[in-house]
Design a protein around this nucleic acid. Structure first.
Lengths: 346, 346
DNA sequence: CCGGCGGATGTTAGCGCTAACGCACGCTTT
DNA sequence: AAAGCGTGCGTTAGCGCTAACATCCGCCGG
């Protein structure tokens, strides 16, 4: 007993805790807490002493303990599905950067399957883990549906694509992008434009398809049957071969740059000159696009920016300002390079 | 007092907690804890009742509270530096997948600067946040140095590259990869092989450089002055233009596929036929490499696998089996495609 | 001269969980 | 039959922090 009493210093395996700081500064742990949380009711002199003690002990508050009591963790959850695709990967990167700048951590939950239960499950797990808000990068129909009727106990923002009105959404205007790609080709004198679409369960793929179709229709051009790929260069190649056999094809709008690369390759192998015989437009403007053979005309999406805008929106919601901000939609840019030119029949 | 006694149900804003489950099952909250943690000292019948109560209340344990008391969080930290590069992005993806499969969460801290303090800082923040272990993807010299003398209170594993012996390392044998690339070119009859290297502060860039140089030296070939790029297609293009002006250049080993793409483009523009006049080998085997013009001969690295092996190693260390496993090094594969052929002077 | 008020601080309760011990019970051992 | 021991639970302390209240003190007006 006495022995215990003689050594009041409980040697911790971890760093100093709040009461250690308090003891050294001659105040209670609560005053230390006040200093940390910027309470105004602390005498400047006391504050200084506490700050000095914190420095001396190299004290850092324990976020886990704080999270337990406040229910807030300074952590944002991100639900994503396939981080190797250029879009999601860049978006994630932008999110991370933006979160980091505002002092938040990012915790990632990736989906194993594309069904609704796995999306709900991921949101659930993140929530349980104490995140303050969630960003969802899951631009396909199932996810959007699931998101629309998921129980939302904490703020959620969808990035890239999502259900129309259920949650705030930060996205690029896919329809407008597809329209300007198609219009660009039409303006070059092509009678019509073929389309290599993305997987039909991807919202973006559908929107690009819609933009393409409507532009063709309103221009009175024939609407060819669209082909459907899986975003990969391989799919673009396979589909490109099909297209290369049809001499009527002079212009193709491909739903992303990787598939466009494959298409470029297929055309080249088939002896179809690009852009002289066939013009091709991609979508995304990946960093490599200017170095394709030929350099690819494409639609630029700023994923990085989208990520950071998503974070800012989410943070605003969390901080309680806007209860349900509507989100925002950015216009993409057409980047004209060497893969498109006037129609050979013009 | 009596009023309080009458309403023992404290309506919670969040879900049920352990004692709610206990109350419903007619046991103490501790017994619920035992059931959850699989203690053997619970009667099967009691266990069933607890399980039923959990199901009825849709109870899920609070990981934050658990983390506070155990000091373990089922969360792994990942320190990364630029997730848009193919390598780190894929590795991160592999890590995420592997972690997810074993029930761990991933929390990401990306470095803003490439100096040592920011690496130490990132590790620190992750640690504070309660992660159980950390994976570092920071394949450049500064980071390796910082890692080597960082205070390691929790298990750390380096992935892709790191300090030789300070921490367990999971990596691909870069030197061997560079050697097989260079040897491939030499075997095709090229007198020597030029090199477009990565940034010199990247460990991988140096190792590839070393492998290239040593192969040339041991073959008695002349060692040209290597060029240094920043991994981007643009750099590959700029450097490729330089190389294209020198008619002596018939074989180039480029340190990654993106730069190789730029080099391909530059050669093409300069009218240098590939592979007939100039052969080019890349490194990484990104998914688009087979669709370049021409399809790129390259060295395949399995990043995804590396990520998951990193996680497994880390988990083994955390679980306390191997205290300091040495890590492992995988051999990369040479993938021969159409960008290389026999020397035009052969 | 005293009640009152508000600024600066301390004390007390938890947040939801696990660890450590306590204790009754039934069974074996000497 | 007394002592021992393992099983199946309950009780009690925290983990490190914040929120809410309690307390002290100096200064004001009535």
């Amino acid at each position: 007993m006495d022995a215990d009493f003689e050594k009041p210093i409980p040697r911790r395996r971890r760093g100093a805790v709040m009461s250690d700081v308090g003891r050294l500064a001659g105040v209670s742990h609560q005053t230390v807490s006040r200093v940390i949380n910027g309470s105004s009711h602390v005498r400047p002199e006391t504050r200084e002493r506490v700050l000095a003690a914190m420095r001396e002990l190299d004290y850092r508050p324990n976020p886990v303990a704080r999270a337990l009591v406040t229910g807030r963790s300074n952590t944002l959850g991100v639900v994503t599905f396939d981080t190797t695709l250029y879009g999601p990967a860049s978006t994630l990167c932008g999110i991370e950067r933006a979160a980091h700048e505002t002092g938040y951590f990012i915790i990632v939950a990736s989906l194993k399957a594309l069904d609704r239960s796995s999306l709900v499950d991921a949101i659930d797990r993140l929530q349980l883990h104490g995140v303050d808000g969630i960003l969802v990068i899951a631009p396909y129909q199932e996810a959007a549906d699931a998101l629309a009727d998921a129980p939302q106990r904490i703020p959620i923002v969808a990035v890239e694509a999502g259900p129309p009105d259920a949650v705030p959404l930060v996205s690029v205007d896919q329809v407008a992008g597809a329209m300007s790609a198609t219009r660009h080709l039409l303006d070059l004198g092509h009678e019509t434009v073929w389309h290599v679409a993305g997987p039909r369960d991807f919202l973006e793929a559908r929107q690009r398809l819609d933009g393409w179709r409507s532009t063709l229709e309103s221009a009175g051009a024939e609407v060819p049957v669209p082909l459907e790929g899986d975003w990969s260069a391989r799919a673009g190649y396979d589909l490109g071969r099909r297209l290369s056999r049809d001499r009527a094809v002079t212009a193709v709008f491909v739903a992303n740059d990787q598939m466009a690369l494959g298409a470029l390759r297929a055309m080249h192998e088939a002896g179809r000159a690009i852009p002289d015989e066939v013009s091709i437009v991609g979508f995304d403007d990946i960093p490599e696009a200017p170095y394709f053979t030929p350099p690819l005309t494409t639609i630029r999406q700023d994923f990085d920016d989208m990520g950071s805008r998503g974070v800012r929106l989410l943070l605003r919601t969390i901080e309680g300002r806007e209860p349900a901000a509507p989100g925002s939609k950015v216009q993409p840019d057409l980047i004209v390079r060497a893969s498109t030119t006037v129609s050979p029949r013009g």
